[in-house]
Write a protein that binds this DNA or RNA. Structure first.
Length: 777
DNA sequence: TTAGGGTTAG
């Protein structure tokens, strides 16, 4: 039967009842013993489940038409005779088993036909059954409301469970105001903690913050007859702290105030699990301060705080770099007698490792193990891994490896893939790819499965060591074994191939990647950077367009890379286009952008534009850097305004704010050499060594060229010695200049001596290890 | 707890 078909029946019944039994009707109200109706949850007498009366009655009710119930002697006996005292629980059980609200309502009517005065309690519980059955229907909106009105008109009081069921039911069908009215109409006794909890929950759920807070406020009064319980706090706090609307309604201080009233007035506190969850969620939502306040409110109230909650906050503080607060909290924990556990140890060690304070981490590890900080704590495999990783990241790979060996020897734990991954990554980053590969084979032999991180680390190692072909081959082998590459794998390989200027292979890999996974901002950047480096600016443009249409907004660094690329290709219109694009998305040029553009104007000998940009830069509050001054000085030299260049240089030297660096000295030395002013050039060279600015190959090349042009041989020999002394490596330009000059003047011995001066340093500088597999590029 | 980017000059 449909719901709409059932409703008129209720109304008919109502009319019938009013008409026939006015006194009876009134008698309910008097006999209704409210007290017996106030239950938190149905306190079903366990015996009633096994009571044979229930199935007997249900059986009769179900197998007979309701019109025949009245005449059924057996039913009358069972229900109404004094021999069988039918309890409220019995009635509830029976009504629930009738299957639908229509039959259940007929049962209510039948109970009312009891020749002796019917017990109002019984009817209340029968109605509860009716409400329960009706509310099962997802479209119960009107029916439940009509049934409720009907019960009201009959004067049948609600049970507590009927009240909460109806409050929830109305709220869920977006009639929360009806829930409120129902609550207000309830007898004061009925508005108990449970009912209020349900109402508050539904008010919060439907966004009625103010009403919910008002009900909560009543409960929190110190003389409240129905004080809050654990459920109240469990309902209110997640919403107050993490709900969407709380910023406009309740301040952080007010939330703390509410918590204090729970604790101080009623001794109700969140338990450890709830508190930990709340802290974790707050920190996830970047509300570390609120999490801090929450925990400290509990400290102030002397409420129960366990180590897990403290660990949650410590984790967030460590992540956020709030180390002072971490120390304060640790001290407070000590004062409160909250003992650190293995997790606390892990957080502390992790934080020390991430701050490169490895020795302190190792120290803490030993101290905690030995029980020198509270009770002894046995570290877990994660802590070992954290330390091994910390050692590797600090370049202390041998110590990291010993730690793993020690862990195994002590029989503590078997290394995990992650343990090996840290070491593999550490060794190649320390320049020893060979050891990484040995560890990889060792882990395979030990039956510790490599994962995609192992593969990516080794692929990265090979790419960094210049053996990109081998990296790809290795990846293909791993792919065959089922380790499919991800974004990281492809980005690493793409970056590697761009690095060796094999753009075709990089593009192939990019296309292959797109078949497997969606590209992200990092891979787009990598590709744009590689293509810009290769000056393939048309391709840069198309990748840029693809990136933006995929929904990724290039950041300022990415724009700078592209602007630089277009500048180098002299594509001014494209530079303007990119600057426009930046403006449209609200990205402002930074110092790198300005420097790139100023450098471009310098190179095109457009000193005026370079100076104009310098002014614009300063006006826009972008601080000039050593690059900026370098570019301006360069421009001055190129247009022959050498005195201006020297003036800027002197200002830089005297202010010590941005002291000139090697590049600036090189520009000036080169310019002086070209002007054949060797005295000045050599004096600047002297000046830079005094100021601790290291000359490099370019400095020496400029000087050698100048000295050669002036044929100042002795000075050149002096500088050659100086160059060897500084282990400054000659390049092809150095060799070209010196070979030509010294051969011509018959000083080849000096040249030989010069070259030999570097022979002992060559080996240690080579980081490329002998290959065991042939490279395919 | 482990893996990929980081821009500008001579």
């Amino acid at each position: 039967m449909s719901i709409t078909a059932r409703i008129p029946k209720c109304s008919k019944l109502l009319v019938l009842l009013r008409h026939q039994t006015p006194q009876l009707y009134a008698s309910f109200i008097h006999s209704a013993s409210q007290k017996s109706l106030i239950y938190e949850s149905p306190k079903t007498d366990p015996s009633s489940y096994s009571s044979p009366i229930i199935p007997q009655i249900v059986d009769i009710l179900k197998s007979n038409n309701h019109e025949n119930w009245k005449t059924n002697e057996q039913l009358s006996q069972l229900l109404f005779s004094n021999h069988h005292s039918i309890s409220c629980d019995h009635i509830l059980q029976i009504t629930r088993r009738l299957g639908d609200s229509s039959t259940a309502l007929n049962f209510v009517e039948h109970l009312r036909s009891n020749p002796t005065s019917p017990d109002a309690n019984l009817l209340s519980f029968a109605f509860q059954g009716v409400f329960e059955l009706a509310s099962r229907n997802p479209n119960c909106k009107d029916e439940v409301f009509d049934l409720f009105n009907f019960s009201k008109e009959l004067g049948v009081p609600l049970t507590v469970n009927s009240a909460t069921l109806l409050i929830r039911c109305f709220a869920r069908v977006k009639m929360i105001e009806k829930s409120m009215i129902l609550y207000q109409e309830l007898d004061t006794q009925m508005r108990n903690t449970h009912v209020r909890n349900v109402l508050i929950d539904e008010l919060f759920r439907s966004g009625h913050f103010v009403d919910a807070l008002q009900v909560l406020d009543e409960m929190l009064q110190s003389n409240s007859k129905f004080p809050p319980n654990y459920n109240t706090i469990a309902i209110a706090f997640p919403v107050l702290l993490l709900g969407k609307n709380h910023h406009s309604v309740v301040s952080e201080e007010e939330i703390v105030g509410i918590l204090s009233r729970f604790g101080r007035n009623h001794g109700v506190f969140p338990d450890s699990v709830m508190l930990t969850q709340l802290i974790t969620e707050l920190c996830k939502s970047r509300m570390n301060n609120m999490a801090w306040k929450l925990l400290h409110a509990l400290f102030d109230l002397d409420g129960p705080v366990e180590i897990a909650s403290c660990n949650a906050l410590l984790t967030a503080l460590a992540k956020d770099g709030q180390f002072k607060k971490m120390n304060i909290l640790m001290e407070e924990m000590r004062a409160k007698g909250i003992c650190p556990n293995v997790v606390t140890l892990g957080i502390s060690i992790n934080h020390l490792c991430k701050s490169f304070r490895i020795d302190e981490a190792l120290n803490l590890f030993e101290m905690m193990r030995r029980g020198e900080v509270g009770a002894p704590i046995e570290p877990d495999v994660l802590i070992y891994n954290t330390l091994i990783n910390g050692l590797c990241k600090a370049g202390r790979v041998e110590e990291g490896l010993s730690m793993m060996r020690k862990m195994v020897l002590e029989g503590k734990y078997i290394p995990r893939s992650a343990t090996y991954n840290c070491l593999i990554d550490g060794f190649w980053k320390a320049g020893n790819l060979d050891r990484s590969l040995k560890l990889f084979h060792e882990m395979e032999k030990q039956g510790i499965e490599p994962n995609i991180i192992t593969v990516n680390s080794l692929v990265g190692g090979m790419c960094s060591h210049g053996v990109v072909g081998r990296a790809l081959k290795f990846y293909r082998e791993m792919e065959e074994k089922g380790l499919k590459g991800n974004k990281v794998t492809y980005t690493t390989l793409i970056s590697g191939f761009c690095g060796v200027n094999n753009i075709n292979r990089a593009m192939d890999l990019f296309n292959e990647m797109k078949q497997r996974c969606a590209p992200d901002a990092i891979v787009y950047y990598t590709l744009i950077s590689g293509l810009s480096q290769a000056r393939l600016m048309d391709d840069v443009e198309s990748v840029f367009l693809e990136m933006t249409s995929a929904g990724f907004q290039p950041d300022i660094q990415c724009y700078n890379v592209m602007i630089n690329g277009f500048c180098k290709k002299n594509k001014v219109d494209k530079v303007h286009w990119l600057l426009d694009q930046m403006g449209k998305v609200g990205l402002k040029p930074d110092s790198v952008t300005y420097n790139t553009l100023i450098w471009f104007f310098s190179k095109t000998r457009d000193l005026k534009s370079a100076q104009r940009l310098l002014r614009e830069m300063i006006d826009n509050k972008v601080a000039p850097t050593v690059y900026t001054y370098g570019a301006i000085i360069d421009a001055c030299c190129l247009v022959g305004e050498f005195d201006d260049a020297m003036n800027i240089f002197r200002q830089m030297s005297s202010s010590s704010k941005i002291p000139p660096n090697t590049v600036i000295y090189n520009i000036l030395i080169d310019s002086l050499c070209q002007q054949k002013k060797m005295k000045g050039a050599l004096s600047l060279f002297e000046d830079m060594t005094i100021k601790g600015v290291t000359p490099n190959t370019i400095t020496f090349n400029a000087l050698f060229k100048g000295l050669r042009d002036e044929n100042l041989l002795e000075k050149a020999f002096e500088l050659m010695e100086k160059m060897t002394e500084l282990v400054c490596h000659p390049d092809y330009i150095t060799m070209e200049v010196l070979t030509e000059w010294l051969s011509a003047v018959g000083e080849t011995d000096k040249l030989k001596q010069f070259v030999e001066g570097y022979s002992h340093t060559d080996e240690s500088d080579s980081i490329i290890q002998p290959q065991t597999t042939p490279s395919i590029i």
